[in-house]
Nucleic acid binder design. Structure first.
Lengths: 271, 271
DNA sequence: TAGTGTGAAATAGTTCACAGCA
DNA sequence: TGCTGTGAACTATTTCACACTA
């Protein structure tokens, strides 16, 4: 997951659980595929498999939306597509701006999935004057100076930040001041925003680090079966690297300390 | 959140909670920034603020790693950087391959955050023969035909998929067959993988849909204060759009039905 | 005295298992 | 008969609040 919500931690009471909301787009995608194949109905079991969840969870999720299925039959695909779209607010048009048209911003601008589901890229914005006017994804890049004007004229409430980390906070402040209330942040930085503004964060490096954590654990468990064979003896090099990368540094104080959950590698522990 | 883990749902018992693991990279980033500013120690309160979480959560998270703080003082920045790096497996080198060098793949290849934390882009792979040999991010793109060879020769255990949705499942199968056990998937598709393989998914469109959900809710609550003013009367257009986008279609059966949690807009409900 | 470490309480999310309906 | 909808049990996560100690 590259994800993470800020704001409104437990404010919502009577609504749909956050975990359910996060899965609705998944169901919607699976349903859309079925719809394109003209499949009329689908069971919770089938749909769950297509969405990669278990059927109990799916039924529970749908129960928060209402009773949209038919016992003994399943769910009407078209009807469910409509209901979920409506619940997610996709039956209306959401103009978004992308700020920061580097490699990633350009990739986002070109990403077809945006347009397909109610989102419309209203403008591409970059701080580099050399970029201004250049077409990206068939649309001229506009300069940051006009950010406020663009937001207001297009009624934009969702902004995508794909700038370098250093610029992200300031960009978010300008977006918010101009009326944006939801931000999708690709910059590797924590944005601080006022109450009432939602921020979701997508962070490549964090995702990789989470994978590395599990990967490391796998390697430790198998001890025998080398998980990454060949070339630089990745596994064997681990301990040596550990000592090299960050010299453990003198512990601030000694005192009793629990061993790390998996047990410490002696050579690696600081004295 | 672009996120979502597959596999190993509750297998772990004695380890670090998944939610905690997902936050460690955040702490690490904040700590690294402090380290660069030569800050020697930090309190849970300060660090939590920098990482965008609350301090109780941070202390609880750290308690799973061991007792690394000093009462009355705080945490030693360098020492904590080292401990978290080690816990995440970042003290070793992780060669990764990126498959699918389109806009997004190129953006990923150029993304500096990769290299900075133990990850090394070992190869860029694309199915388009015209791409082969072309340099992207200072590295020649290689053809999919050599995928297995590249994986094995570089001891790659983490693969990044940035192909179109249609190719993703097949690519994942080849990666896994060649020895990859962790996948970061940017393709908007559910990958089905064998047990023991971790998949994390980053999905732009899903993130936007989640934002739209909350955005819609905000708009509904304020009724008076128009959240997105100007131009196309976005808010006012919502109802009309709702009817237009997906014709509600005849309900499969009538029967009593709960109203949607927020109450249904009459004009929008199917007959 | 300031700030960690952690049981215990509260909340959120998942899974079970089955009643009930088409 | 097959499959939904959902209480109830369970598991995970967050938050509280305070004992403890450098």
């Amino acid at each position: 997951m590259a994800t993470g919500r800020t704001h409104r931690p437990a404010t919502r009471s009577r609504g749909i659980p956050e975990a359910t909301v996060a899965r609705l787009p998944l169901y919607l995608r699976a349903l859309t595929a079925l719809s394109e194949r003209s499949v009329p109905t689908v069971s919770s079991e089938e749909l769950a498999a297509a969405a990669g969840v278990n059927s109990a969870k799916l039924r529970k999720d749908f129960s928060y939306l209402g009773s949209y299925g038919t016992r003994g039959v399943g769910y009407d695909v078209e009807y469910l597509v409509y209901q979920i779209s409506r619940e997610l607010g996709l039956t209306q048009d959401w103009p978004v701006v992308i700020v920061g048209i580097g490699n990633l911003g350009a990739a986002l601008a070109n990403y077809g999935g945006f347009a397909s589901r109610g989102f419309r890229v209203a403008a591409l914005i970059d701080a580099d004057p050399a970029m201004a006017g250049k077409p990206v994804a068939g649309m001229p890049v506009q300069h940051t100076d006009d950010l406020e004007k663009i937001i207001r004229e297009n009624g934009v409430s969702i902004g995508v930040i794909a700038t370098p980390a250093g610029a992200a906070q300031q960009v978010s402040e300008r977006l918010i001041a101009a009326g944006v209330t939801s931000i999708l942040n690709f910059a590797p930085t924590v944005l601080s925003v006022p109450d009432g503004v939602d921020v979701r964060k997508v962070d490549l490096s964090i995702e990789l680090q989470i994978l590395a954590f599990h990967e490391q654990r796998k390697a430790g468990e198998d001890s025998a079966a080398a998980p990454a064979p060949a070339v630089g003896a990745v596994t064997a090099a681990a301990e040596a690297d550990a000592a090299a990368v960050v010299p453990p540094a003198a512990r601030p104080a000694s005192g009793a300390r629990k061993p790390g959950p998996e047990g410490d590698v002696p050579a690696v522990m600081p004295a």
